[in-house]
Computed example of a mutant assay.
Amino acid sequence: MPAERVNEIIALLKKEYPDVRTALDHSNPLELLVATILSAQSTDRQVNVVTKNLFKKYRTPQDYIKTPLDELEKDIHSTNFYKNKAKNIKKLCELLVENFGGKVPDNMEDLITLPGVARKTANVVLWSAFGKNEGIAVDTHVKRVSARLGLTENTSPEKIEKDLVTIVPKNDWGLFSLLLIKHGREICTAKKPRCQDCVLNKICPSAFTFG
């Protein structure tokens, strides 16, 4: 994969989406961590509806810890798999207090020790909350768009991430994920991508192949 092509993709997407950021509403690392966990198998829009009230009620790890599990489940029930999410959130908050002084850790090694936190969630938190590039978060949009652009032939998030970090400049890792997510939502959609409106259609090997 020529570096020039990857850099061109990044430059065009940066120009198209100059103010891109995570779609999850948050005001601190704990809120982003919780919102990212809630977003699994749910839409960011729905999560933002839930967290609008949730983050007024729960401001610290201790707030989650002291709340009965069934009450937390009720507070997040409109997100899918809310029972498992509630259990993970309470447990991770206990670990934050026990192991990290009540603070969300700012490194991959510690983040992935927390319940419900895999590399994708950790990458989102590291970039959007701490401005750190330790990897590229691979969700369904990143998976789809990177494949259509010919940046990977793999299908597992772990292997896709390994492919992308070898060709995307490290300084752009966190931003690159957000750019592909935004582009996947706006233009390069799953069923009917809008190739005619795509800023990448002249350099995308998949352009105009969708009927």
Rank of each mutant, 00 (worst) to 15 (best):
residue 187 I to F: 04
residue 113 T to S: 00
residue 195 C to N: 10
residue 113 T to D: 00
residue 59 R to P: 06
residue 182 K to L: 01
residue 79 T to I: 06
residue 36 T to H: 03
residue 119 R to T: 00
residue 99 N to L: 14
residue 76 I to S: 04
residue 30 L to V: 12
residue 74 K to E: 15
residue 26 H to C: 12
residue 156 S to K: 15
residue 180 L to Y: 12
residue 81 F to S: 07
residue 67 T to C: 10
residue 41 Q to F: 13
residue 94 E to M: 03
residue 178 L to R: 15
residue 99 N to Q: 14
residue 142 V to L: 05
residue 44 D to P: 05
residue 86 A to M: 01
residue 187 I to G: 04
residue 183 H to C: 05
residue 186 E to R: 09
residue 141 H to K: 09
residue 117 V to W: 10
residue 49 V to Y: 10
residue 207 A to S: 11
residue 58 Y to M: 07
residue 48 N to P: 06
residue 52 K to W: 01
residue 70 D to P: 00
residue 127 W to G: 01
residue 8 E to K: 15
residue 183 H to V: 07
residue 14 K to S: 08
residue 102 G to I: 14
residue 60 T to D: 10
residue 112 I to C: 04
residue 134 E to P: 02
residue 51 T to C: 08
residue 193 P to V: 10
residue 95 L to I: 14
residue 16 E to A: 12
residue 159 K to R: 14
residue 103 K to E: 15
residue 86 A to G: 05
residue 157 P to Q: 08
residue 55 F to L: 04
residue 155 T to D: 14
residue 98 E to K: 15
residue 91 K to F: 01
residue 116 G to Y: 00
residue 93 C to E: 03
residue 110 D to L: 07
residue 32 L to T: 10
residue 7 N to F: 02
residue 169 P to H: 01
residue 7 N to P: 01
residue 38 L to D: 02
residue 69 L to P: 06
residue 168 V to D: 05
residue 147 A to M: 05
residue 190 A to E: 09
residue 196 Q to P: 00
residue 86 A to D: 02
residue 65 I to W: 11
residue 5 R to D: 04
residue 209 T to K: 14
residue 40 A to Y: 08
residue 68 P to T: 07
residue 101 G to N: 06
residue 70 D to G: 00
residue 125 V to Y: 06
residue 183 H to T: 07
residue 106 D to L: 00
residue 98 E to H: 11
residue 14 K to Y: 07
residue 58 Y to G: 03
residue 107 N to D: 13
residue 16 E to D: 07
residue 180 L to E: 12
residue 105 P to C: 08
residue 77 H to A: 12
residue 36 T to F: 04
residue 61 P to M: 06
residue 71 E to S: 09
residue 138 V to A: 01
residue 21 R to F: 08
residue 43 T to G: 06
residue 29 P to C: 11
residue 123 N to Y: 03
residue 55 F to G: 03
residue 163 D to M: 05
